[in-house]
Design a protein around this nucleic acid. Structure first.
Lengths: 232, 232
DNA sequence: AGCATCATTCAGACTATTCTCAGGAAACCT
DNA sequence: AGGTTTCCTGAGAATAGTCTGAATGATGCT
């Protein structure tokens, strides 16, 4: 994945910052704007590979923006961001043509995974495979399936997201705060103990099937997923 | 299927967008215009392999367009789009010479299937087979027949479309929103619960005849049709 | 007209999942 | 070792997601 350009369109400064920062950190080239007019302009100038578009904007709604952009010959796929309570009536047709949508509040890891999925489908850029291969453990992201030494393991959605986050940052300690910020929705305001709980769940399911424990605790720091052998 | 050129003729921008986007994503080369005059011009210049033609156009009706185009020696098959309440006599005679028609509102999956069917019949391009073979289940698209281990299963139209959509995206989780967007008509604005209902219907009919359940639920994500071969 | 099939909604049963909490285990320190 | 901190994990309550049968109306067929 090299130099994938993301255009973020959202009127809430908090969301804009949150997305900008974390997508930039994830290796994307980011440009963020706050309304439809700016979005149209930026889409034309910047030629983004993908657009993150809030459906509810002050000047025009996300669909008008899409229409305008598409009519200008820009075919970048769109990942719509919608509030959870406006899903049922307004979301028809959102998943057409490689586009997709996410409800707010979302988790950062999930949104990055979605972006990758869309880029993979639309092939607008060089993107990694849909299968994450980390030695004993393989994650098929299309099927949302996890295999440990070839055997399918049944994980809950949160377990799945946590494992995916750990595995995509191998051999690197992640603090509980980082994990919470990336795996859980951004408005989650519970305790960090939940990370401990979920690590425990994961270990209970994974460890019986692996040679060595897969998640190691760095006391006072956080957790780390360690790849079995050769690091790459 | 490579580089099949589709010409879309419809005066409603929404329909044009919807069709353009999803056909382009389905691998077609798309050109969309908004009236009869443009259609004639585009048909001559673009040499489309198939034309999607709204019968009701602002300047001239679809039949005049067809006549004109054909008189110019362009024999691309036409898939007419008509409103559901259009009178019967207007529609008769539409399906001669490889042509066909669909009533609005249509489902995206269905229109793509129709295009493939027409191309198959007229052999204007390389198109995939009419039989979808997915292990235990085979779908004969020409006959609209589904066989499970060689035995014919009777499905309702919607059941058929749902199964076809699931099977043509094997080993990939499809969200209820995706299913709704592709299988149901584009103006459907009911609840996603209907997908659950139809999955239930399908299972009730299919599962008794298969070794393992064919549709797996990914709780919190969607549904997946899984082919027999291992999850590599 | 009468019957059969189909599409859609809905509610209740059911199950998986999320999250918190608290006691005990393990690691770390002096 | 003893004390302190951090982590692990089982239990339980609340919640969210899913399945299914039944009711309703629409559509189509004979």
């Amino acid at each position: 994945m090299q130099n994938v350009k993301v255009l973020i369109v959202d009127d809430e400064p908090n969301i804009r910052d949150l997305l900008s920062t974390s997508l930039r950190f994830a290796g994307f080239s980011v440009h963020a704007v706050k309304n439809g007019a700016e979005a149209v302009y930026a889409a034309e100038k910047g030629e983004p590979d993908i657009i993150l578009l809030d459906v509810m904007l002050p000047d025009m709604n996300g669909f008008s923006v899409t229409k305008k952009i598409r009519s200008m010959g820009i075919n970048a796929p769109v990942l719509f961001l919608t509030a959870r309570d406006e899903t049922e009536d307004k979301i028809t047709g959102l998943t057409v043509g490689g586009d997709d949508y996410m409800t707010k509040p979302f988790s950062l890891d999930e949104i990055i995974a979605r972006i990758h999925a869309i880029l993979r489908r639309t092939k607008t850029a060089e993107v990694e495979e849909s299968v994450i291969d980390a030695g004993e453990i393989k994650i098929n992201q299309d099927a949302h399936e996890v295999f440990v030494n070839g055997e399918l393991v049944d994980l809950s959605p949160t377990e799945y997201k946590l494992l995916r986050f750990l595995i995509s940052n191998p051999n690197r300690v992640l603090t509980k705060a980082q994990i919470l910020d990336h795996v859980w929705e951004y408005d989650f305001n519970g305790e960090m103990g939940i990370v401990e709980s979920y690590v425990s769940y994961l270990r209970k399911k994974l460890d019986p099937m692996t040679a060595e424990p897969v998640i190691t605790t760095k006391r006072g720091v956080g957790y780390m997923y360690k790849t079995a052998k050769n690091g790459k």
